[in-house]
Amino acid sequence: MSAIAADRVWKYFGDYPALRGATLEVPAGACVALLGRNGAGKTTLLRILANLSKPSKGEVTVFGESARDEKIRARIGYLGHGIGVYDDLSAFENLILFGQLMNVPDTKAAANAALERVGLTRVRDGFAREFSRGMRQRLAVARAFLHNPEILLLDEPFTSLDDRAIAVLHELLRDALAKGATIVMSTHQIREAMELATQVALLERGKIVHTGPRTPEMLADPGWLYRMYEEKPQ
């Protein structure tokens, strides 16, 4: 049973199909780099997997159950374009709140542990709006990993992170993979992302046109996969 299975998913915005029968199967423990140009539908697909949007047609199952099931949602961690923390709450309060909402058993301990992992323990009582951008990003990462999710859905997570935040995220992702988590990460072939990836999937105009293992060529040459598909005759 795959960890995530999207079966012929269509998503219409009005009459425009952003996803046209996208099919993706992600085995448990894999780390998928979801590639594609802007407008290909990466964000749309991730949002559907994260239960932020319903597919117009097709089905998404996570661990064999509907992705919309409450218990499944508790096992998913989502990091989108926005950082997803409240400016007027302290770092600690933010994590307590999200811990409570994600059904984390001992929220105080979990929050403290998360803050330590991302290096924000010193500023745990500082308000998020006072943080620098890099600190805000680390707090966002802390929030996404707080409940030790078995599935991580990340939308261009490495884009516009500072080096400290990149290091923190890279380490957290590696540890999560070591513990058997499944990761789907959309990316513009940032090196750190490609290093972690075990599979790649290429989304083009709403369809998955390639899935397969991430090869050394892809790591060495960022545009390799895109060129493969561009040279194909129309």
Binding site: D15, Y16, G39
Partner: peptide
């Protein structure tokens, strides 16, 4: 109008 909207989006993509 719906048809035009969807064609327009397709064009932009």
């Amino acid at each position: 109008r719906r048809e035009i909207d969807s064609l327009r989006r397709e064009l932009h993509a």
